[in-house]
Simulated assay, not measured.
Amino acid sequence: MSSFLHITNGDITTGILKNLNIKGEIITWREMLCEGKTTADVGSEDFWKTRFDFFSNVYQVTKKTFIDFTLKEYRNLCKQNQDEIILWFDYDLFCQINMLAVVSWLKKYRKGSKITIVHAGASGNHIGHLSKEELANLYLNRTQLSQDDIEYADYIWQLYCSDSPLRLETVHKFNPSSPFIYLSDAINAHLKRFPSIENGLNKIENNIIQAAHKADLKSENELVSKLLKEQQVYGFGDIQYKNKIKELRNLFSSLNPVKLSEDGIQLLNNQINYYRELRSDFSYLGGAKKYSYLYMNANDKLLKLTS
């Protein structure tokens, strides 16, 4: 009989699969590779050192937490060698980038394995929101990845981890037969995370000040809840939005209730540019420095800045 390994996008999905009594081992991929610097060599010592440095510096994650939460589960993955590997990842940027990394790792360390993907939830419909019947049906109709599919995912991952995002602008659009049906939208969302030429804020940062201005919000938690509902293409959690709000603290005169400062109002109307205030050489999106590129809203293109 065939043996199965399920790799999930998080603990919620892992819990759901256990309740479904689906056969096979389950590994939870506990990472958020859509944030912070990444290197292409998934699972290497350099890869994990780079990731720990990010989590430690930005989210004050201790080494023990990182080992217990992420590395132990990864080491468990390394011990698995089943006949079929099934990927359970949502449509959003958070999940799609993690998925690319997992496929890249499988290409290198599980060469020749049968890899299938569950298209679990169209835009706006996460795995955790689906009924048992819907999930069982999606599982039965999972798609097997061809070698070309695996090579393609690995190539997109290599580009994501490169020091330039420019190739991503075009290459992700020209594979209409790809089974990665949510990847194009996720990469588009990724490219809009580079600072806008209009005011120096990226798409997410502009979304934050727009949401803060439009609604009568009594607290930071209300602002975060609004962002979680409205910005689902990113798949961010509350901890990520709170970190973003902290970075933009000078754009708020108050967070209880939520009110923009004078700078926040001017940025909202593109009357000033905040690029210089936010610029950091230590801020990365994948392998690229966030502030080495500008997003040109008029033509949806990236512009490389010369140093």
Rank of each mutant, 00 (worst) to 15 (best):
Y234F: 11
Y291C: 05
R167A: 15
G121L: 13
L255A: 06
I115D: 05
Y274T: 00
I150T: 10
T306C: 08
E230L: 13
V58K: 14
Y109V: 11
Y293L: 00
S123C: 08
Q210F: 11
E35M: 07
D185P: 05
I197N: 10
N297C: 07
I209G: 14
L255R: 12
S253Q: 12
Q96A: 08
N206L: 01
D90G: 02
G287E: 12
T50Q: 04
I245E: 14
K229M: 15
L87T: 09
K64P: 01
V42K: 02
N137V: 05
H213N: 15
T143K: 11
G235E: 10
D238R: 03
V224P: 11
K132S: 09
T50R: 02
T38L: 03
F69M: 14
Y234D: 04
Q96P: 09
L223E: 10
N207T: 15
I187A: 06
W105P: 12
I127Y: 13
M296S: 09
Y291T: 07
K226D: 13
L183A: 11
K304A: 11
T28A: 07
G200V: 02
F89Y: 09
N188V: 07
S162T: 06
L294W: 04
N137I: 04
K79I: 01
N76P: 00
H190M: 12
I117R: 11
K72I: 13
E222P: 04
L106F: 07
D92H: 02
Y182K: 03
I97K: 06
C78Y: 00
I181Y: 02
A40Q: 04
A122M: 09
N243L: 08
S178P: 02
T116P: 00
K173A: 05
D281T: 04
T8P: 00
K226I: 03
Q231R: 07
F252P: 10
K111T: 15
P165W: 14
S131M: 08
H129L: 08
L130M: 14
L130P: 03
K214C: 13
E220M: 04
I27Q: 13
E133S: 14
Y293A: 00
F66Q: 06
S2E: 13
I26W: 02
I26D: 13
S307Y: 10
E277A: 08
D281K: 09
Y139A: 08
L201Y: 12
L87G: 05
N19R: 14
L77A: 06
S3P: 06
S113Y: 03
T62C: 01
R51W: 09
T14K: 11
L100I: 01
S3H: 11
D11Y: 02
K242V: 06
D68M: 06
L268A: 03
K301A: 09
V171Q: 07
Y155Q: 15
C34Y: 03
I117N: 06
K246G: 03
S253D: 13
G121R: 07
E222W: 05
G286Y: 08
N81V: 06
K214R: 14
M32K: 05
R276C: 11
Q240V: 15
E151H: 12
T143P: 01
L294H: 09
